[in-house]
Structure formats: structure tokens, C-alpha cells
């Protein structure tokens, strides 16, 4: 180990600080999205429930964030005999960028 390494090795705190700042910026927005998903879930469920009886667990909502565009995927399983099989819309709507 050279003398230079001895000094360079010490400066790990600024690296920790930068890593945390980048990571937490990302994680805070992800947690915000979870709330968005939860709200969308409730509202979409309410709209569907007005027309057909649907099991809460049979409505799946997923948000994929891409660099250019994001996709919102809504998967609703409607019980027969109202409809024969699954109604799947994908992607239903693009959100943000």
C-alpha cells in the first residue's frame, strides 16, 4: 500500500453522502408513487364496482417508469357470467415522462 492510498482511503464519508443523496432522491419518489397507485386502485375499483361486481383482489394496477414514457397497466378480472373471461387493457394510459 502506497502512501497515496493511505490518504485516499480516508475520504469515504463524502462518497457515503453522495450515494445516499442519489439513492434517497430515487426512493422518496418511488414511495410517492406507491401512494399514487393506492389512490388509483381505489378510484378505478369504485368506477368498476358501479357497473359490475368485482373482487378487490382481481384488480391489479402497475406503474412502470421508463426514461421516455411510463406505462400504467390495469388488469381487471371480471367474473363470469357477466363476461366470459378476462378483460385486459394494456397499456391503458401513459402517465408522465
Amino acid at each position: 500500500m502506497s502512501l497515496f492510498d493511505l490518504f485516499r482511503r480516508r475520504d469515504s464519508a463524502p462518497v457515503a453522502r453522495n450515494r445516499l443523496q442519489v439513492l434517497l432522491q430515487h426512493e422518496r419518489s418511488a414511495v410517492g408513487n406507491n401512494d399514487l397507485i393506492a389512490r388509483l386502485h381505489e378510484e378505478i375499483l369504485a368506477v368498476i364496482a358501479k357497473h359490475v361486481e368485482v373482487d378487490r383482489d382481481k384488480v391489479q394496477i402497475k406503474l412502470d417508469r421508463g426514461s421516455v414514457a411510463s406505462t400504467l397497466e390495469i388488469d381487471v378480472e371480471v367474473p363470469s357470467p357477466a363476461m366470459p373471461a378476462r378483460v385486459s387493457e394494456r397499456p391503458a394510459e401513459a402517465v408522465g415522462g
Partner: peptide
């Protein structure tokens, strides 16, 4: 250790 740059400083944690 914080002074030596080996450990996050109080200011760093507070800022984050």
C-alpha cells in the same frame, strides 16, 4: 473519525 472524513458528519446526516 468524522473530522478525518471516515464517518458521515452531523451536517451530512442533517442535510440528507
Amino acid at each position: 473519525r468524522a473530522q478525518r472524513g471516515e464517518m458521515l458528519k452531523t451536517e451530512d446526516v442533517l442535510e440528507i
